[in-house]
Design a protein around this nucleic acid. Structure first.
Lengths: 200, 200
DNA sequence: ATATAGGTACACTTAACAGTTTACCTGCAT
DNA sequence: ATGCAGGTAAACTGTTAAGTGTACCTATAT
């Protein structure tokens, strides 16, 4: 009766959405359950019907967001396609994700709370491992003979370190976003380093 | 009269110390001025005599800590010494710093608040630039003919990205510390990549 | 028709905490 | 001796916010 439809299944969804905005804007501690309920267009009582406490609501949300992000960060090897091309393509896709407003906002929220209370999110740490998909990719590329890699895990970490070091952490800490062509140059350079080190 | 000496100059120091502990443990928002004064062995009124508000106290502290950390992170080129040796030495020193309890604790506090409120620390961002000392080092090494580097700034960023990606961020986000020899292997590998890319 | 599941509105309880006020103490310099 | 700079203790004010209680509304299923 309030707005449109609200077939009382996505009431929960509305709450999560409102909570997401509120937590992103203010962080866990400064977020207010009153404001969350307002944003969600639900009564506070209803919020508490779905989530027994602020903490539970936050954790539910965090797990969810992390899954979305981690899924988007996954990559896979394309046999037949030039490996250099592939790495560049991947680098660009990663950078685009890292710097997209939704991912950055969500990541800030996540990071802030990981720092404040590592216990709160220990379980999530295990779902994190999108590095594994990079590792797999390098392993396959090596098996394919297009790269020479003794330690694919290490190679994956290196590539990610280079990308994140230039296209993630600075923005996370408040640096202004750079222009796409500068970003592309950074990525080319990172791929150069990888090819220099591991090129067959 | 309370404890020992307290020649009422390091009362201020005691407050900063107490505040440091409190802010590290709880972050800005959850820290309590009552607890800070207790930790400092000072009355709340005295705390407010030295620092007009929680925010001012926090900023003072943050700037201070950052200076300490940034100073420690600075490096300089040693002409004559083998460049590979030098990079490895530097890498180890950096990793040791990144993973030292004091630096990690302080950094968590800093990061958490940078994420929460970028404005609060915008000014500090400018003091940050220890990357510059790496850049300088690479520039000198290039001038010395021991490395071939077109863009020293970029090289500096790459080296730092590799080191931090393996020896800083994971621990920052709650991963357990690794054994020194594993760390050394990581560093060797990073230096390999740099030498491969820029070796003369 | 009516009970029930899901919802609303809103006042309420409890607690934490920034910052202030007040009254008082103490050692040193004049 | 005395006044003041620097300190203490503790009660107080005002605000914000988590979570609860209560009374009421409204569909749909029986």
């Amino acid at each position: 009766m309030n707005e449109i439809v609200e077939n009382s299944v996505d009431k929960r969804e509305a709450i999560l959405q409102g909570a997401f905005e509120e937590f992103c804007e203010n962080g866990f501690l400064a977020a207010s359950m009153d404001r969350i309920s307002k944003r969600a267009g639900a009564s506070k009582r209803t919020v508490y019907r779905y989530f027994e406490s602020k903490e539970v609501l936050f954790q539910t949300l965090m797990l969810r967001q992390w899954r979305v992000i981690a899924d988007n960060l996954k990559v896979s090897y394309q046999p037949g396609m030039d490996i250099r091309e592939q790495l560049i393509e991947m680098g660009r896709a990663q950078a685009r994700l890292y710097t997209s407003p939704e991912v950055m906002t969500a990541n800030k929220m996540l990071m802030g709370e990981i720092l404040r209370d590592p216990e709160l999110v220990r379980e999530i740490q295990n779902e994190v491992d999108y590095t594994a998909s990079f590792e797999q990719l390098f392993k396959e590329a090596a098996a394919d003979g297009v790269l020479t890699i003794a330690n694919p895990r290490q190679a994956a970490e290196e590539f990610i370190s280079l990308l994140k070091g230039k296209a993630f952490w600075p923005f996370m800490l408040g640096a202004p976003l750079v222009k796409p062509d500068e970003m592309d140059a950074m990525i080319d350079q990172s791929v150069d380093m990888m090819m220099n080190q591991y090129g067959a």
